[in-house]
């Protein structure tokens, strides 16, 4: 469904007299097969949205080529647009217009008849739990309702490929969990192929078959969540000792399994391969040497750990660093 090769997009920014080039997307290759749900993960400013805008024909690549739904994004952009649904970060419904009107007008711009879009729109409202909100204005909707309405807009012309840009940003946990269900339904009930961007690791983990990690405009990983996690050497085991004076002894015990450990006050932690098997032995040994534990915690690697392993930075640090790039991109937008 998607076949992108060497996509590049360069923003030019000006600060005073100094002109700088920001390579927001710097040589991205991306393949998405029919029926796949792919999570496009990266910190803010990593180039996720810019890549998506190129794939949805809203932005012309400076270099590289991409075929989406079988059409070239530059030379056959209209065919691409006809085949895809795109739900942008901001959505696309005017806050002061009636939801149903907006959905119908949007569908009619795809060449559908009024009767068709009305029927389809009302079905979608029901399926996405928006019953009774047909004449309501989005400004009077909750965040979750508004987001589901955005998804209705993206599905009104029955696309086979759906792009979701940060679908759950800004939602409360309950609305988020609810939206996840609807996103999974896109494939299970509609057979759609989905490419979604997110900077939440748990979201990519929960929804996507495959995760593509992007950082500073380049793809740094492309695999299933399980395989990516396997790249992180082991589970994080954290011991909290009751008597802080014994922390050294506990650390030695853990070190024999983990190699490297980190000590902080009365806790010690380290990465242990297949912790499920190793921990019982560790506990016996601690017991035998009379080290009393306050708590023990075993955490499976998260995608955050994966990101740290891949890039040497945690997602949070990466976001702080990318603020400058974001500002540049905004400036670029304003200059156009």
């Amino acid at each position: 469904m998607i076949e992108a090769r060497g996509l590049v997009h360069v923003f030019h920014t000006k600060q005073g007299k100094e002109k700088t080039e920001v390579r927001a997307v710097d040589g991205v290759d991306l393949d998405v097969a029919e029926g796949e749900v792919v999570g496009f993960l990266g910190p803010n400013g990593a180039g996720k949205t810019t890549t998506l805008r190129m794939l949805t024909t809203l932005l012309t690549p400076n270099e590289g080529t991409a075929k989406v739904a079988g059409y070239d994004v530059v030379t056959q952009s209209e065919d691409v647009r006809r085949s895809i649904g795109y739900v942008s970060q901001t959505g696309g419904v005017f806050s002061g217009a009636r939801a149903g009107d907006e959905v119908m007008d949007h569908g009619m711009l795809y060449g559908r008849t009024k009767a068709e879009v009305e029927k389809r729109g009302k079905e979608l409202f029901e399926q996405l739990q928006l019953d009774g909100l047909w004449t309501r204005m989005p400004r009077n909707m909750s965040g979750g309702q508004k987001r589901r309405l955005d998804i209705v807009m993206g599905l009104i012309h029955e696309p086979t490929l759906v792009f979701l840009d940060e679908p759950t940003t800004g939602l409360d946990p309950q609305a988020r969990a609810n939206l996840w269900e609807h996103i999974s339904d896109l494939r299970s009930k509609r057979g759609a192929t989905v490419l979604l961007t997110t900077h939440y690791l748990d979201e990519a983990d929960a929804l996507a078959d495959r995760i593509v990690v992007i950082d500073q405009g380049r793809i740094v990983a492309n695999d299933t969540s399980a395989n990516l996690k396997a790249q992180v050497s082991g589970d994080l085991v954290t011991l909290e000792v009751a008597d802080a004076t014994r922390i050294g002894a506990a650390a030695d015990q853990l070190k024999s399994l983990a190699g490297e450990v980190e000590i902080a006050a009365n806790t010690v932690s380290g990465r242990v391969a297949r912790a499920g098997r190793a921990v019982p032995g560790l506990l016996r040994e601690l017991d035998r040497t009379g080290i009393e534990l306050e708590s023990i915690e075993v955490v499976r690697p998260t995608l955050d750990d994966v990101f740290l392993t891949l890039t040497g930075r945690s997602l949070r640090d990466a976001e702080a660093a990318s603020d400058a790039v974001d500002a540049a991109a905004v400036e670029e937008g304003a200059a156009r």
Partner: peptide, 16 residues
């Protein structure tokens, strides 16, 4: 105002 709410972008992603 419409651009800020994503309306222009939503229209531009249709084949219109």
């Amino acid at each position: 105002g419409e651009w800020r709410e994503g309306v222009v972008e939503a229209e531009r992603v249709t084949p219109a």
